[in-house]
Design a protein around this nucleic acid. Structure first.
Length: 570
RNA sequence: UGGGGCGUCGCCAAGUCUGGUAAGGCACCGGAUUUUGGUUCCGGCAUUCCCAGGUUCGAAUCCUGGCGCCCCAGCCA
């Protein structure tokens, strides 16, 4: 177990403390994170991972990583590899405790035989449709299967032959004999095994029957001597079955199930089905598309493991349905990167500035700290300067709006780390578009200092035109238009819900030269713009590609919005 | 014949068992500092806890009755 040993509490930890106090599990604490390898892990899983591994850490227990692989038709090694990679990346370690439900198939089969022998399970020949019809409804009891009273010997024989593959899919199932009139539908003779003549990614073709979740899960927990089996709210009705199976097989170790509310995040979806659909329909570039709420997506977007752990701490654990504001996640990553990410300069939407009183053949360098708030921490780099520069188009307004204190005709601003400049005139093309902003600089303000003590309201970033290099920068935004895309009517195509501006590619941003050496996988801040990440997939040595992790908070944007103030000129 | 859960500030969430007079975070709104309109700092932000009755000196907490939302009828997990 690793990471952030901040003590915290929630209803599950409280329960564990009580269990420990009463000696319920002999003081043992063993949890497990049990993903099914049929998709990539998302931020909702991170909540569960932090909970399960965090509890093990806090109570000096263990947390197992178990692949809950009971359905051969949807599972794949690609997914188990991705899961292992992602949990490790998040910062957790399960030691030797990596398990597979598929390794328990023989043990599960033995348990099934025992239930039949005890008269607690039977092989049923009803078709899928017949099972559905006889299950009854929410308000009406179901009716017993005609095969319910089949002899033990016959069920035993049939199960053995099902296992050998003698029957067609759907022709037989193994069912627990519980109560067809139970108000809890999960207890109406639930299925334990179904026939599937499918190749399993781990057990190959050795099995023709595969266990249903409820049967496999509780026995897997028991086998691993889990104490607290933590899952999400939708399994609440399954808890009665969980306990029933454990009693039915006389399990020597009986874990207890506890449910908590799964995480929903605004402006995205968490359903594995929908995420798979996004990937398969190519609406995104893959599971690791930086717009995806998958851990792989967040990683490639530039989120750090610490920021996601911090986020999971902040959201808490409770039993009420919830949708957490993405703003909290954005806060968590800014909080982390603020003290660690080197500051550099890049101009995304450039407009040229010409310093008329600066000699054309001259140039000089300024020393600029990577972390101005803590200058010794990351050192500094040299930033070249010359007569022609690029600045952000948004940092100039020919007719400045109220409270706009950036560059405008006659106005003076500071070029970060360089000089104070004053705008003297602009040059426009035939279409009226500004092509050059002519300025003068004050040689006495070298380094951006004002020896005479005069105040300048604005400091803007810039890049030397002669020394800049071009790079691709990808500006990411929220994937969906609506705060709760999951609330869209059933059947709404995902494509119709996507935010068309979730990705804007800037092909030729102007970057300061130090960035040519930016290493893949590095987090940086483009000053005044946001935090960016050197894309580990598409970057080449000397040719980095940048992904915007999250923009900086923008007080000016809020003023513009509040005052209905001018759209940026230029 | 229905069962299981949940409702505390715009979003999360303590507090509910063991009544004592609404933590904290995000967001938002000020104001100070600032060579990032960033950061940091300081201040504001629920007379009220889904609603209505009741018990009590006192109720978010206890009782009664409503209302709203979520989950369960996959041979998915």
């Amino acid at each position: 177990m690793t990471a952030d040993a901040t003590p915290r509490s929630d209803f599950i930890r409280d329960k564990i403390e009580k269990d420990n106090a009463s000696g319920k599990f002999g003081g043992r604490v063993a949890t497990r994170f049990p993903p099914e390898p049929n998709g990539y892990l998302h931020i909702g899983h991170a909540k569960s991972i932090c909970l399960n591994f965090g509890i093990a850490r806090d109570f000096g227990g263990v947390c197992h990583l178990r692949m809950d692989d009971t359905n051969p038709t949807t599972e794949d090694v690609e997914y188990v590899d991705a899961i292992v990679r992602d949990v490790k990346w998040l910062g957790f370690d399960w030691g030797e405790h990596q398990y597979f439900a598929s390794d328990y198939y023989p043990y599960l089969y033995d348990g099934a035989v025992r239930l039949i022998e005890k008269g607690l399970a039977y092989v049923c020949d009803l078709t899928l449709d017949e099972v559905r019809k006889t299950r009854g409804t929410i308000k009406e009891a179901g009716t017993p299967s005609p095969y319910r009273s089949r002899s033990v010997a016959e069920s035993l024989d049939l199960l053995a032959r099902m296992k050998k593959g003698e029957f067609a899919e759907g022709s037989h199932t193994l069912r627990a004999k519980i109560d067809m009139a139970s108000p809890n539908l999960k207890m109406r003779d639930p299925l334990m095994y179904r026939i599937k003549h499918a190749h399993h990614y781990r057990t190959g073709d050795t099995w023709h029957i595969y266990p249903i979740y409820d049967w496999a899960h509780c026995l897997s927990d028991a086998k691993e001597r889990i104490t607290h089996s933590i899952c999400t709210l939708e399994f609440e009705n399954n808890r009665e079955l969980y306990d029933w199976y454990l009693n039915a097989v006389d399990a020597p170790w009986k874990p207890g199930q506890t449910e908590f509310a799964r995480l929903n995040l605004s402006y995205t979806v968490m359903s594995k089905r929908k995420l798979l659909e996004l990937v398969e329909s190519k609406l995104v570039s893959g599971w690791d598309d930086p717009r995806m709420p998958t851990l792989a997506g967040f990683r490639r977007r530039g989120f750090t493991p610490a920021s996601i752990r911090s986020f999971c701490d902040k959201i808490g654990v409770a039993r009420a349905d919830n949708t957490v504001d993405v703003a909290l996640l954005e806060y968590a990553i800014r909080e982390d990167l603020n003290t660690t990410a080197p500051r550099v300069m890049a101009v995304l939407k450039p407009v040229k500035v010409v310093i008329d009183n600066y000699p054309a053949d001259q140039s000089e360098e300024f020393e600029a700290p990577y972390l101005p708030d803590d200058p010794t921490k990351l050192g500094a780099r040299k930033v070249p300067f010359c007569r022609e520069l690029y600045i952000e188009r948004d940092d100039f307004m020919e007719v400045p709006a109220k409270k706009f204190h950036r560059l405008a005709p006659g106005a003076e601003v500071r070029l970060r780390w360089a000089y104070l400049i004053t705008c003297r005139s602009v040059v426009k093309d035939a279409a009226g578009e500004i092509t050059e902003i002519h300025c003068s600089y004050d040689p006495a303000t070298r380094g951006g200092n004002t020896p005479d003590g005069r105040k300048v309201k604005g400091t803007i970033h810039w890049v030397s035109a002669r020394h800049a290099f071009n790079a691709e920068v990808r500006l990411y935004d929220r994937l969906f238009k609506d705060e709760k895309p999951g609330d869209a009517p059933e059947g709404t195509p995902l494509a119709a819900l996507l935010n068309p501006r979730a990705l804007e590619v800037v092909k030729d941003a102007k970057l300061e030269p130090s960035l040519v050496a930016a290493a893949a996988g590095q987090n940086i801040q483009f000053e005044r713009l946001g935090y960016f990440f050197v894309d580990p997939v598409d970057s080449k040595p000397g040719k980095p590609v940048f992904n915007r992790t999250v923009p900086l908070k923008d007080a000016w944007a809020r003023i513009v919005k509040a005052e209905g103030a001018a759209a940026p000129a230029g």
